[in-house]
């Protein structure tokens, strides 16, 4: 298999803050690959290393067969990249910025760019300065699509956009995938990821803690509510189950315990068979949001210095 993106043990620190801590990835072609993580988890750092905008302290990264450190020009030419905070030349028009970027790309880029821009309701003579946030995002995505890239990398593309622009963004993303291209999407919009992703990865404090096809993750994770005869039975069951394999979260409320369990067994309820004084077992499937929240674990109590502050 020819990986579109491959990284080995990437590590990056900013001062005392560890942004990436040994990230190894292999992303196959033709999928929508979504990287989920909280703010400051290291998503943008990873993307900036992939685009050759930042050097890792350790490890290697390859995009479309090119080394991100030494062949970053080839990477940037081949990849469609939508940064989190795009910088546009405000004094240009929609057409002018397209022509400016066309200089770095093969013939045909400009007309393709204008076609994509028109789908966002953009006219060639509009000044960028006068565009709304959503329309500017439309310009950035159109610039990223002009050369029909094999790989589209999006960093929080829809944050701050209204519902209509979001929807248009999602549609363009879906259409890339339908054309057999690869989409790398970094996001904290769990609902969007749930719609469009083939594979999801969770990034937590600079480490990849999970990479999994989304449908398998959802199929194998269930939410259980067990009701016991009394509080004591519930308490001892909680102690026992909380330590078991695949239990992502365990809580007790009176004589009920609530578990989020990842399991490949055919009959996962069997693991509860030996519990004493168990009166009732209920279960339901989980949304990606529930699963993501459980994997991210409890909120940290202390205010760790955020990465963005540390970068300044």
């Amino acid at each position: 298999m020819n990986a579109v993106i491959r990284t080995e043990e990437l590590a990056k620190r900013f001062g005392r803050v560890t942004a990436l801590d040994g990230v190894s990835l292999e992303i196959p072609p033709g999928v929508v690959w979504a990287l989920l993580g909280r703010n400051g988890a290291g998503k943008s750092t990873l993307i900036r290393i992939l685009m050759g905008l930042l050097e890792p302290d350790r490890g290697r990264a390859q995009v479309l067969g090119h080394d991100c450190r030494t062949e970053y020009l080839a990477v940037r030419r081949k990849v469609g990249y939508v940064p989190e905070l795009p910088v546009l030349y405000d004094w240009m028009t929609v057409a002018e910025i397209g022509r400016f970027c066309a200089a770095f790309h093969p013939a045909g880029y400009f007309s393709e760019y204008l076609r994509a821009a028109a789908q966002f309701g953009l006219r060639p003579d509009q000044k960028l300065r006068h565009l709304s946030k959503g329309m500017r995002a439309g310009v950035v995505l159109s610039l990223a699509l002009g050369h029909d890239p094999e790989l589209l990398i999006l960093d929080e593309p829809t944050s701050g956009l209204d519902v209509m622009f979001r929807r248009q963004f999602l549609e363009s993303m879906v259409d890339r995938a339908a054309a057999g291209k690869t989409v790398f999407l970094a996001s904290h919009q769990v609902h969007e990821v749930e719609r469009v992703a083939d594979i999801v990865a969770f990034l937590k404090e600079g480490r990849i803690i999970l990479v999994e096809p989304l449908d398998r993750l959802k199929r194998e994770t269930r939410h259980w509510i067990l009701t016991f005869a009394d509080d004591r039975a519930a308490g001892s069951a909680l102690d026992r189950f909380a330590a078991e394999d695949g239990v992502l979260r365990a809580d007790r409320d009176g004589r009920q315990i609530e578990l989020l369990v990842r399991s490949r067994e055919d009959a996962p309820e069997r693991r509860f068979a030996a519990a004493l004084n168990l009166e009732q077992v209920e279960s339901h499937a989980c949304s990606l949001e529930e699963i993501f929240t459980a994997y991210m674990g409890p909120e940290r109590d202390c205010e760790a210095p955020s990465l963005k502050e540390a970068r300044k």
Partner: peptide, 14 residues
């Protein structure tokens, strides 16, 4: 078509 419906619903074509 797969592509049309995927776009219409904004869901993954697969």
């Amino acid at each position: 078509s797969v592509r049309e419906l995927a776009r219409q619903l904004a869901v993954n074509p697969n």
